[in-house]
């Protein structure tokens, strides 16, 4: 536990406090991001998303976007967390799962700070952010982190054996992003595609966050349960693969 905390702190510092203005970026970055959406989508593309009219483009995008970023960025970073620390594994006795957990949780912590800042900014600039919805979004984000942790353990373990994975993963995540209704809403798709979206486990998160935070739609449904089970299943798969392979990391690093 001591060691995990240490690695978490080290990772966290190196990523944020290492830069000059430190945590300030955690607030400035989301503000710039929101500003960029406002500029690009509202002013340049004059984009219209079905279902977004009531809330404004910026709020609509902002609420869903951080969930995606948390998943994608944490996974991408965590995928190399074992091989990046090859200098540790095989030299000192360090439980490798700590490296992955520290990597995921420090990325996630940063994005959670960013998300909170973005929501605060949206509320301050007049968007209708529902406070109870934000509170209820906490378990949703927790589920997302469970899912992300499982996925990260899986890719970090496989990365040791398949070195091309990092490249494949960045392509895959880019592709996956467009299959996930972050920049658009499901209602804009043709009929058959709308039901196909349910096969993407990540569809749930931006949609559910928007319904909670923007539409104040609190009632839990089957999709919440499915998402929870999927997140737990991903965690189970990640832990299974990681524990099977971890004894052999040293031989393949």
């Amino acid at each position: 536990m001591q060691l995990l905390w240490h690695f978490f702190g080290r990772e966290f510092r190196s990523r944020y406090l290492g830069s000059m203005s430190g945590l300030l970026w955690a607030v400035v970055h989301p503000a710039l991001q929101l500003l960029m959406y406002a500029l690009v989508f509202e002013k340049i593309f004059k984009a219209r998303i079905t279902g977004a009219e009531a809330h404004g483009m910026v709020a609509y995008l902002g609420v869903g976007f951080w969930a995606w970023t948390l998943f994608a960025e944490s996974s991408a970073r965590a995928s190399t967390s074992v091989i990046d620390n090859a200098a540790l594994i095989g030299k000192v006795a360090v439980p490798p799962h700590l490296l992955v957990i520290a990597s995921v949780s420090s990325s996630a912590a940063l994005h959670l700070v960013g998300y909170s800042a973005a929501l605060t900014l949206l509320a301050l600039t007049g968007s209708a952010i529902d406070p109870l919805g934000v509170l209820l979004a906490i378990p949703v984000m927790a589920m997302l982190m469970v899912w992300t942790m499982g996925f990260a353990l899986l890719v970090a373990a496989v990365q040791v054996f398949v070195r091309d994975l990092a490249q494949v993963l960045s392509q895959l995540l880019a592709f996956w992003f467009f299959l996930t209704p972050v920049l658009y809403s499901r209602a804009m798709l043709p009929e058959f595609a709308q039901s196909l979206m349910d096969w993407n486990p990540l569809t749930y998160y931006p949609e559910r966050l928007r319904s909670l935070i923007l539409d104040a739609h609190y009632a839990p449904g089957w999709n919440d349960l499915t998402a929870l089970l999927l997140a737990l299943a991903m965690l189970g798969l990640g832990v299974l693969v990681f524990t099977r392979l971890r004894r052999h990391f040293e031989d393949f690093l």
């Binding site: 496989v158 054996f161 398949v162 070195r163 091309d164 693969v241 099977r244 392979l245 052999h248 393949f252």
Partner: peptide
């Protein structure tokens, strides 16, 4: 070869 690594992984899994 890289293929060996993949095969090794599948066997270990």
């Amino acid at each position: 070869r890289n293929a060996d690594r993949v095969r090794a992984m599948l066997r270990l899994l």
